[in-house]
């Protein structure tokens, strides 16, 4: 066996759905030794995911979480070197393969996993780098969004643990200036505006116009006042860094 073959076999022993007799034979020695490695590796993944997504762990149940992690390891094993990013890769896998959720899991479980993963992303995101292209917000310019915010559309209000209900929600999960992570729920119009601004080059004015047309909003003094309040709030919370000057 070459060094590469031995390493491939040991990786398979730990990640594949089963520890096969072929892999044990390739590695040599007693099966119990490779079973121990398999259990240690898999337990570490399950514990790490559970600690990163505590409410999801509760919704899935210990067995459900273990089964979902096992399927993830078998079908799309982690490619990140950072432990903190494991829950993000797991969350993406669940979105692609929701069938691996336990049948008796609450219906909001997938939204909850996505929400908790977004919280983790906001916690660990790199601070916004110093930028030389920032100016005041302007309708003619795109908006520089904070690197520490994530926009989510949910079918269940899982960001409200005490009042989770089935209703469409548009939220931003963000890390504020004091490093605390919070969730901000938008109205449908505000959600469309913020979501559109994530498209590269999309200006603030175009995003607002599209939302107005889509929702058939009457533009009056009340609307303008609430739009100004929204933009000021997003600047104050640090979600909007300012206008992004074109080069």
């Amino acid at each position: 066996m070459t060094l590469d073959s031995l390493q491939r076999s040991l990786a398979s022993a730990c990640l594949d759905a089963d520890l096969s007799d072929d892999v044990v034979r390739d590695l040599g020695g007693a099966r119990s030794g490779w079973t121990l490695y398999r259990e240690m590796v898999r337990r570490r993944f399950i514990d790490t995911i559970g600690e990163s997504l505590p409410r999801s762990r509760e919704a899935l149940g210990p067995d459900g979480l273990a089964r979902a992690v096992s399927r993830w390891l078998d079908r799309a094993p982690p490619t990140t070197r950072y432990v903190r990013e494991l829950c993000l890769q797991f969350s993406r896998y669940l979105c692609d393969d929701p069938a691996c959720l336990p049948a008796d899991a609450p219906p909001w479980t997938l939204d909850l996993v996505r929400y908790e993963a977004a919280v983790m992303e906001a916690v660990i995101a790199e601070d916004p780098p110093p930028r030389s292209d920032l100016v005041a917000l302007s309708m003619e310019l795109p908006v520089a969004l904070s690197t520490t915010q994530r926009f989510l559309r949910l079918s269940w209000s899982v960001h409200l643990p005490e009042a989770t209900a089935e209703r469409p929600c548009a939220i931003a999960v963000y890390r504020g200036p004091n490093d605390a992570v919070e969730a901000l729920e938008f109205t449908p119009v505000a959600g469309d505006i913020v979501e559109a601004l994530r498209s590269p080059g999309r200006t603030l004015g175009a995003s607002i116009r599209d939302a107005i047309e889509h929702h058939r909003v009457e533009v009056d003094a009340r609307f303008n006042e609430s739009l100004a309040g929204l933009l000021g709030d997003l600047i104050e919370r640090g979600l909007f860094l300012g206008g992004r000057r074109a080069h």
């Binding site: 060094l3 390493q7 990786a11 730990c14 590796v41 094993p77 982690p78 490619t79």
Partner: peptide, 19 residues
Amino acid sequence: SHGGRFLHDLLPLPFTHAA
């Protein structure tokens, strides 16, 4: 790690000259 997969554990190398 192997083949782009990270196992997040300290896995043993064979005690060989090649390794």
